[in-house]
Design a protein around this nucleic acid. Structure first.
Lengths: 354, 354
DNA sequence: GTGGTTTTTGCATACGCATGCAAGAACTAA
DNA sequence: TTAGTTCTTGCATGCGTATGCAAAAACCAC
């Protein structure tokens, strides 16, 4: 009795062909939808493939077809549940169309990661970035090779890059109005990274809108999108001579840190003493531990739109980059004081309709 | 003036060779560490490559070398911050050795996902599973082709699969002792999925140890590792005629749900009325919102060990599967009553040393 | 300068799959 | 039955890189 030892090589189309008594090309066609194979032959081939345990070698296929069915996903903040959720949504949607994600965790937000340049080596079909800005070189290369780039949750001035984002401006403005309606007077904002334009847009809209409405002085600190950074930023805003009584955070994740500091270190009551509002509406925001009022930015829609853009760009390579905005809404919970007017409860959900 | 239109094909080694005035093989060697190329030639080639923006085509390379430098990672619970963290750690460590992650988000815990079978098509060098059990077919195929499989945080009876896990048994026993020392008498446990052996081991150890110590009756409910599931399980344990006053949860993520329900729905004070203990010590556990007492299971170490195993298996294909246990410790925070003896504070950290 | 040793280089081929082309098989209509 | 169609099939080649082998070049010692 002979025992098989050591790793064997996986069966190839040639192996299958031999067993089924056909040519390698026939086998290839049997696995190519729409190719010309007789029904009977096809069955014979599939059976042979099954008994051998044959699986298409996608490396070889992609070498021949110049399509890998792999999409690169660059994430800087996987510990932020928002991006974890985006990753999950993307993964599931891509899977449904037979594609998979090659994961790149980039270091900091903002600047480009040299590691990311290697993306092209993998012959990916597209590149999705969350909270990451690609280098000029990478962008140029992708453009040249017709690889679409989509940024999620970041604007980009670079013309070749498509964009999917939430309602940054409207979110900031509505939060501003909401906090004013709640009776607040001393506003603070915790931005993300200074280089992040998403954060910047929200900041400008928040500050600008408050100014229009009669509150010209908004205190600003930066949390760098990290938990620790946001905690430090919160301390900054509360250690002022005239500390703020309402904080708008550029992400839920940072808002969690703000809540922590506000309650534990400063002993403040939320929302009686201070209101905290975030952006994203991650699942944790609804946990009673945080119970965070926030402007939502639905990960599922972001993922969906991003993939739509990719597919369009692949189908029509010439087409120019797109910018899409996904709708969100203000989710009223317990971390911000409710205005005593214009708040309605519909189907158990609180709505603010000024 | 001629404008370049449409996507161009990426430059190949042949292109570089032509520009540098050498053969394609020379270019290949210039990019292969340890290959025989004259220093001068190499420089000329690298320069040519640079001006053309050449990047190795990894599909072609992996076709020729039979190594893809891609590791498949299957994750069922990306929304659980513990696994997000594991993914991050894995990604960073693999990146340092020039490898990348192909992400598979599998559906439920426990059973095999047919989608995962496609893993082999990508010619991955290894397969890392978190909270996922591969099908027999997949396992067999991997064995045959010499592709190592490592499970993180799950045991496996299957002989071909390596395992990296935390101290499941010790964690459960120590938590049991700790809760007894805290004066608790009515114990509950929230398990993960019924099919999860990790959960089962913890359950048996917890129940068994409590029995030895004189508490034979432990109430059990299953949270299926999901937030909603754990919330329901908590209700179950508290709706009993004789409700529990201490709950051990098979994961921090589920413990968060338990805390939520206990506080919001039942109005209980933690830890005065009830103690909640988790396992994992995810970053969120230290947030004051949860302030969760938990037995740690360091993601970084899990990732590190998993990769070590992979590398060993690749280096020595014959070697048999390994099982490793990563050490953790009981992290004392505010969600569980402290015993009034044997608790010490060292460097700001509370330690329980019975 | 010579013979021998070591390094460097190119040629040819393999990796596994896809696909244009032409030959062969099957089928249709008269 | 035959000529004309339509389907199937195999052959040959290409995708971009790696590598064994032998030829060429460079180097070395005397």
């Amino acid at each position: 009795m002979k025992r098989v030892k050591g790793p064997q090589r996986a069966p190839t189309e040639t192996d299958v062909a031999k067993l089924a008594g056909v040519s390698q090309s026939a086998v290839s066609r049997a696995f190519t939808p729409g190719a010309s194979v007789a029904k009977k032959t096809r069955e014979r081939i599939l059976e042979a493939a099954k008994t051998l345990g044959y699986q298409t070698n996608l490396m070889a296929r992609s070498l021949a077809t110049r399509r890998s069915n792999i999409v690169a996903l660059a994430i800087s903040n996987l510990e932020n549940p928002f991006y974890a959720q985006v990753a999950k949504e993307l993964s599931e949607r891509l899977r449904d169309t037979g594609r998979h994600i090659l994961l790149f965790t980039t270091s900091a937000d903002g600047t480009a990661d040299p590691e990311l340049e290697k993306v092209l080596s993998y012959q990916v079909d597209a590149l999705i970035l969350t909270a990451t800005i690609p280098s000029h070189g990478l962008t140029a290369q992708c453009q040249k090779n017709g690889i679409p780039i989509v940024q999620i949750n970041r604007e980009s001035k670079i013309s070749g890059i498509s964009t999917v984002r939430g309602e940054n401006q409207r979110a900031a403005e509505q939060v501003a109005e909401f906090l004013i309606a709640g009776g607040h007077k001393k506003f603070g904002l915790i931005g993300g990274a200074k280089g992040s334009n998403t954060s910047q847009i929200r900041q400008e809209a928040f500050v600008g809108h408050l100014k229009i409405l009669g509150f010209p002085s908004v205190k600003i600190a930066y949390g760098d999108y990290s938990f620790q950074g946001a905690a430090a930023a919160t301390r900054q805003l509360l250690d002022l001579d005239n500390p703020v009584d309402a904080i708008f955070c550029a992400s839920d994740y940072m808002a969690f840190a703000a809540l922590d500091v506000v309650k534990r270190e400063f002993g403040l009551r939320v929302p009686e003493d201070i209101s905290i509002v975030g952006v994203d509406d991650v699942p944790e925001a609804s946990h009673s531990a945080y119970d965070l009022t926030t402007y939502s930015q639905p990960a599922a829609s972001l993922a969906e739109e991003a993939i739509k853009i990719i597919d369009q760009q692949i189908a029509h390579p010439g087409r120019r980059a797109q910018r899409r905005e996904v709708r969100g809404q203000l989710i009223l919970r317990g971390s911000a004081r409710l205005p005593n007017h214009s708040v309605f409860t519909i189907a158990g959900k609180k709505i603010w309709q000024p």
